[in-house]
């Protein structure tokens, strides 16, 4: 029976081989022509891609239609306890360099001591806090105010604001960083030239340079997760629900309720960037 199958398959294999040779030859020929026309094609393809994006074409993600969502993020600073699980989860989830200089998200600590006008600010990346954790890859806030008289203290988680009018997208020379239909600001790592103009333009310090890949990097709201119906990693691990994420098109979603039920603020509204990360419980020193 097997022999029969082999015999029957032989002509097919020969035919396939011939066809493959022909395909290879045509492929070479086509390659030569394609090289000559590469510039034109690339330009046209890109224009088409831009047009498709503008027209709201659905990206090839199974069971996901980006025209049906409008993502937003909420931060309830009243709840944050500065445990930094979000920062560590983000680094692991998104393969961010395990050092004190590259963060997609971070947490700031604001402490006002008695008799002082301005808050003292640090983040988990502060050398004193890195020294306290003993490693660049795991984070904690050093208990540096234990002997001081603290008048007011709170934590503020920070991340990319996925602005409605993002300055980073405006300045990108190639269009490698772009705004999606569902409101996220993403970077095409296969197209970014690594000029870092976007790093300069972001007023929030949310972008950094990925030296290993030679491209810019930043928070994507865990786009690979949210398009599968999951929560961003930082939201998932937050033990006190200080981070809220959801779809503003869904009026019953946690984020819609959060924005509806609180008097929310955004960071640096004067820049005109119109952030989509909404804050509750921050103070005058936060920017």
């Amino acid at each position: 029976m097997q022999q029969n199958e082999q015999l029957e398959n032989q002509p097919d294999e020969q035919l396939e081989k011939q066809q493959k040779e022909r395909r290879d030859f045509l492929g070479c020929l086509g390659g030569a022509i394609a090289c000559g026309a590469a510039t034109v094609v690339a330009s046209a393809a890109s224009s088409a891609a831009v047009a498709a994006t503008a027209g709201g074409a659905v990206p090839p993600i199974p069971n996901f239609d980006w025209s049906k969502h409008q993502w937003a993020f909420g931060v309830d600073a009243e709840r944050c306890i500065g445990c930094l699980r979000c920062v560590e989860a983000c680094k692991r989830e998104n393969n961010v360099a395990p050092d004190a200089h590259h963060f997609r998200t971070w947490v700031e600590r604001y402490v006002t001591l008695e008799g002082e006008e301005k808050a003292r600010i640090d983040s988990q990346a502060d050398p004193a806090n890195i020294a306290a954790s003993g490693t660049d890859g795991q984070y904690r806030f050093a208990n540096r105010y234990k002997d001081a008289k603290v008048e007011k203290a709170f934590f503020v988680p920070k991340l990319c604001n996925h602005c409605t009018h993002p300055a980073c997208v405006q300045v990108c020379p190639t269009g490698a960083t772009y705004k999606t239909e569902d409101g996220a600001v993403l970077i095409d790592h296969t197209y970014c030239i690594g000029c870092q103009y976007c790093v300069q333009a972001c007023p929030y310090g949310a972008r950094f340079f990925n030296e290993e890949k030679g491209v810019t990097d930043k928070c994507t709201w865990c786009y690979h997760r949210i398009t599968k119906g999951l929560q961003p990693a930082c939201v998932e691990v937050c033990p006190v629900s200080a981070r809220i994420f959801g779809d503003r098109n869904d009026k019953q979603s946690l984020i819609s309720q959060f924005i509806q039920n609180h008097r929310v603020q955004v960071l640096r509204p004067e820049t005109g960037n119109a952030p989509n990360v909404f804050y509750v419980g921050i103070d005058k020193d936060v920017s």
Partner: peptide, 16 residues
Amino acid sequence: HLGQPERAFNAMITPH
């Protein structure tokens, strides 16, 4: 300076 100098012409082929 560019992280991906071989892509420098992207800015000319598909300028934003």
